[in-house]
């Protein structure tokens, strides 16, 4: 096995192919993650503020969440008249998936901000927008964060599925490796996908820790 791996990486064209696939995979999973978050945030806020819209928005999010990404990879090019192998298909499909996944956690996170805290912000003269950006959103971050972590792992794993119909990313190592009956290549693809998910997850955790120092203060009362 090790011999096979060494042989695989011994070839410059293989190395280049793996790095390209990794780079493309990263792009195809992280761009939708960011876009999906940016879409889910205003929808979650709207669902929080406008009570009668809430059921409708959550229902729509649930329907979009139910539609398999693979189906979207195939249907989007037909609906928009794009080439089947355009990377836009994957980006749009996963953006929809991520946004649909994040609407509910975003709403729950915003709802979980204690009423007395938002009341205090209003009473001190915060306007709605400022209160949202500087008080409610920071306090909602820890709860939204767990949703974003699930979404990042899922989209990284879903990008590979696109290889079934020929789109790029590490999934190509699977189809290509299968056709050439080259197990080492498939294993490398699996390991890199898991590593990518792990690294992104660690970076996200690090980011949350950086922007939410108060969550590490601990719940105990210190002696004065």
């Amino acid at each position: 096995m090790i011999e096979e791996l060494l042989k695989f990486f011994g070839s410059p064209s293989n190395r280049e192919m793996v790095l390209d696939a990794l780079a493309e995979h990263t792009y195809l999973s992280l761009v939708p993650l960011l876009l999906g978050f940016l879409v889910a945030l205003p929808i979650g806020r709207l669902a929080q503020r406008v009570y009668w819209l809430r059921g409708m928005l959550l229902g729509a999010a649930n329907v979009f969440y139910t539609i398999p990404s693979l189906a979207l990879y195939v249907l989007i090019p037909g609906l928009f008249g794009w080439p089947l192998l355009s990377s836009n298909n994957v980006v749009i499909a996963l953006t929809i998936y991520t946004a649909a996944l994040l609407v509910r956690p975003t709403l729950d996170a915003l709802e979980s901000v204690p009423g007395h805290v938002t009341a205090a912000a209003t009473a001190m003269g915060y306007r709605t927008g400022r209160s949202f950006l500087t008080v409610e959103l920071p306090l909602a971050v820890p709860a939204i964060a767990s949703g974003v972590r699930v979404a990042s792992v899922s989209s990284i794993s879903l990008v590979s599925l696109g290889a079934l119909i020929g789109t790029g990313g590490l999934g190509k190592l699977f189809t290509d490796g299968f056709q050439r009956w080259y197990p080492a290549q498939v294993l490398i693809g699996i390991v890199l996908t898991v590593l990518l998910a792990l690294v992104v997850d660690l970076l996200l955790v690090g980011l949350w820790r950086l922007i939410t120092p108060w969550t590490r203060a601990g719940g105990r009362v210190l002696p004065s």
């Binding site: 792992v153 899922s154 794993s157 290889a163 079934l164 190592l173 189809t175 498939v186 898991v194």
Partner: peptide, 10 residues
């Protein structure tokens, strides 16, 4: 969750 099913199955 991070395991890619396509890779796993192949």
């Amino acid at each position: 969750r991070a395991l890619p099913t396509l890779g796993l199955v192949t």
